[in-house]
């Protein structure tokens, strides 16, 4: 079954995000830090009249933070709250078919919890990720 995926780059890797999880794609302006919060919470940003919680995706994946200003982000709505998931860049949106991860393929580190399948673009396998798994403080994702 085909569904729409947004192809983005996070931490230098191409990933596919199910468009059902994506509310919009924005450029994040200034971010107000939230002291004492989990490391992956970069801070809060205003998106028109909404306050969004900005997630430093690299940190959420267990990688060192890239630092510097926030840029592009994917907005997702989880349990009534808006989150901005930072991405390096965005490519396009296209319909793909998601297949499960090939058996024996074990993902590393932070990718393990977020990776949920593979889509294939012109023969290139791209990891499909679940944005919810990147968010701290939520109940574990149902399998």
């Amino acid at each position: 079954m085909l569904s729409l995926f947004l192809i983005a780059h996070i931490a230098g890797r191409a990933v596919a995000i199910d468009s059902a999880q994506v509310e919009s794609v924005v450029d994040i302006g200034s971010v107000v830090p939230v002291p004492r919060s989990a490391d992956q919470v970069l801070g809060l940003a205003a998106l028109r009249s909404r306050v969004v919680t900005v997630i430093d995706t690299r940190v959420a994946l267990g990688l060192p933070s890239a630092g510097g200003a926030a840029g592009r982000a994917v907005i997702t709505l989880v349990e009534g709250q808006h989150y901005a998931i930072l991405v390096d860049s965005l490519e396009d949106v296209a319909p793909f078919e998601m297949v499960p991860l090939s058996s024996g393929l074990i993902l590393d580190g932070g990718w393990r919890s977020t990776g949920c399948g593979i889509v294939e673009r012109d023969g290139e396998p791209i990891l499909a990720i679940n944005l919810r798994a990147l968010l701290p403080g939520l109940a574990a994702v149902a399998a």
Binding site: V34, P35, R36, V41, L44, G137, L138
Partner: peptide, 16 residues
């Protein structure tokens, strides 16, 4: 605010 923010225990909410 988001659960991750509320989890710090020192914030009651957010505003714009």
């Amino acid at each position: 605010a988001a659960p991750a923010v509320m989890a710090t225990g020192i914030y009651a909410g957010q505003t714009l």
